[in-house]
Write a protein that binds this DNA or RNA. Structure first.
Lengths: 190, 190
DNA sequence: ACTTTATGCAAGCAAGTACACGCATAAAAG
DNA sequence: CTTTTATGCGTGTACTTGCTTGCATAAAGT
């Protein structure tokens, strides 16, 4: 990926994040990237191609992959906090807004599976973790699918609401929120 | 509100829900409403005016107001389930998608406060409820702001994820999910 | 019977949109 | 030194977009 192309992609992704895909015109992409408009079309097939290549770059995905959840200590509280924090630290308001900006009918079909990978990474990893904890005799049998979903929803809900409404809606600090949510989760399993 | 204007508003809102505000053109609104395009501008100031009037209609807001949370029995489990169900029954995928479709910079400033009223209604009502339960001696002292937020995030997260990814991501049934989440919440307060 | 009101229809308009073409030029590669 | 490559610049094109105007007509109200 040459420097110019990368500048174009970066500009496009930031604009999509801030204004949505449809409202992001090739003209403003070019201006924001500091290149001539026709350069976009020399480097990329079309506008959609720019964004699609951006979505496929690691730097334009919140770095939420199964790997970030591997560092477990087999302690329920510490690990659940780690899971939530790993997600919430990476899924910044910027990335929340980007995934909404990408929800244009023209490209959603091609981006949905990528966007879905983030929640999937959390849910799969955490469910597997809970199952292993059960096998190790550290957890009673329970509906781990539903439990993992509840924990993830908590992380997701907070992140999304914060990104959308800021402190106008919720003035609970992230750390307090995580502690509180995990405490709830733990106690319910005792 | 005359019949024609209402048809126009309804068509516009459905299109915004399905394709977003920017991608919803006056041409397709007219076609979907079964009227001539110039009729839109006889009835409304401009495209934005159509959507703004739609947003202000009760039928185009999920009917989530503080009133729907009034029917409490002062039983923590029953009431928390009622809160979650009241929200989740009304906030259908259609309304989730509509609120995303409305997130266009051109009108977000004027719709954000309306969109925010839904989470606010839940959070305020539930926090007040928890405080009253505490006054009645049925609950120990706790950080009710953070607790309410966690419960709401659970409801919100499930609703949003279901609307966005359907059963591809989560095959947990709504009723199971509510029961599970509420169980978690209750136990944590014991 | 007359007037008002609501709508359709055709045409149009200024601005914008994605994208293309040809030409100039400067740097990099051979 | 020559050729290739990358880019800027101006112009252009086919189409769309939000919105307007003038005229016809049918229904509704008086």
């Amino acid at each position: 990926m040459d420097e110019t192309s990368q500048k174009i992609i970066d500009a496009a992704m930031m604009l999509v994040r801030d204004h949505g895909y449809v409202a992001t015109t090739t003209k403003v992409i070019a201006k924001a990237a500091g290149v001539n408009e026709c350069t976009l079309f020399r480097k990329f097939k079309n506008k959609k191609d720019i964004v699609l290549q951006g979505v496929n770059q690691a730097k334009w995905r919140a770095n939420v992959t199964p790997e970030i959840f591997q560092n477990v200590q087999w302690d329920l509280r510490a690990d659940t906090e780690m899971f939530m924090r790993a997600y919430m630290d990476r899924m910044t308001p910027d990335f929340v807004n980007l995934s909404i900006g990408l929800r244009a009918p023209q490209l959603y079909e091609e981006t949905a599976s990528l966007i879905m990978k983030v929640p999937q990474a959390f849910l799969l990893s955490f469910t597997q973790y809970l199952n292993k904890m059960h096998e190790m005799g550290k957890l009673p049998k329970a509906d781990f699918d539903a439990l993992a979903l509840t924990v993830f929803s908590s992380a997701f809900g907070y992140t999304f609401l914060k990104a959308s409404f800021g402190n106008g809606l919720l003035n609970v600090e992230k750390d307090d929120y995580i502690k509180n949510s995990v405490q709830m989760f733990i106690k319910s399993l005792e």
